[in-house]
């Protein structure tokens, strides 16, 4: 790693300054470069319209007072007041904590379950499509729909979970009205839903590992478990990191499933930051404060995922 950066630095130092380099471009190269920029322009404009503009809008709103239920107040600039309010808002902290717990539980949960599913689906089945379909189905299901299905699963009187418990002689549980059990139930639903995407990513990764590596390992004397630890896991690392990034980003934004299953309840016990932002802006119409909360969530997202990016750059096949 360090040697390559040093090399890159040396190469950089050796090349003449950019302007001189440009002067040496042939007319053909210059025309090609101009064409390239022109082809990029629509994408850049689109990005500006759908990403940059809303972010700028969000940040400026977060620095203002803007409450649709109090239009007479106008939209005065209030500096960091909204952020200060968040720091002393108990629900902000509890919903942030809930979000963190969702991340800590469902990201590893989904990756573990997804890895298991991917390994299973990678077995040499005679008929492959039912396995693949089984993997795809949870992924294709809309989130809210998933939430509703699981709400029904965990329902007290007719839910299949309680029915199953009673079948084996256990007493039914108040799944959705006990704070702890409600959290467990929503976590199960989230893991079920998101492990299918993780499994698809990891399955694609598994299929890039050449068979001959396993054959060589078998001849070298490695058993099943050793092959998994010595070959599958390290070869799968880039795919696992990608899956972790995607799962973490979506976990930070956890919304639909708790919304449909418990609507954040009982109390605020399953309410996430995204749900609190939604409530603040859509239900309470407090756009200024909601925007400040969204900015905070965005910042957390960036910090959390940039940690992973360090790992994606490292290709296990190349590094010394």
């Amino acid at each position: 790693m360090s040697s390559t950066t040093a090399e890159a630095g040396a190469r950089h130092a050796a090349t003449p300054p950019a302007r001189k380099g440009r002067a040496r471009l042939s007319p053909l190269e210059r025309a090609e470069r101009r064409l390239g920029l022109m082809m990029l322009a629509p994408a850049v404009l689109l990005l500006c319209a759908v990403v940059v503009y809303p972010i700028v809008e969000l940040v400026t709103t977060s620095l203002r007072f803007e409450h649709l239920a109090q239009p007479w107040m106008g939209t005065p600039f209030v500096g960091l007041d909204n952020f200060a309010r968040a720091m002393s808002d108990e629900i902000f902290w509890s919903s942030t904590l809930n979000t963190v717990i969702y991340i800590v539980v469902t990201v590893p949960g989904a990756v573990l379950v997804g890895l298991g599913l991917a390994l299973l689906a990678n077995q040499p089945f005679k008929i492959k499509w039912p396995v693949r379909l089984g993997l795809l189905l949870p992924w294709a299901l809309p989130l809210v729909f998933t939430g509703l299905i699981f709400r029904w699963f965990f329902e007290f009187n007719q839910g299949i979970v309680n029915n199953a418990l009673m079948l084996v002689g256990m007493s039914p549980r108040q799944w959705l009205s006990d704070p702890f059990l409600a959290f467990v139930a929503t976590c199960i639903a989230i893991v079920w839903k998101s492990s299918s995407f993780v499994a698809l990513v990891l399955l694609a990764g598994l299929q890039t590992i050449p068979r001959s590596l396993y054959e060589a390992a078998e001849i070298d004397g490695a058993g099943r478990w050793q092959q998994f630890v010595e070959i599958t896991l390290p070869m799968l690392r880039p795919a696992i990191v990608v899956a972790l990034i995607f799962r973490t980003i979506t976990a930070i934004q956890t919304f639909d499933i708790p919304y449909a299953m418990t609507n954040g309840g009982p109390g605020h016990s399953t309410e996430t930051l995204a749900m609190y932002i939604h409530k603040t802006t859509i239900d309470f119409l407090d756009l200024g404060y909601g925007s400040a909360l969204a900015v905070l969530m965005f910042a957390v997202s960036v910090v959390a995922t940039s940690g992973y990016l360090r790992y994606t750059k490292r290709d296990p096949r190349k590094e010394a």
């Binding site: 050449p210 001959s212 060589a216 390992a217 096949r317």
Partner: peptide
């Protein structure tokens, strides 16, 4: 092996 099957990592 023909493709050597070296463990790349």
């Amino acid at each position: 092996f023909q493709d050597y099957a070296l463990y790349p990592h």
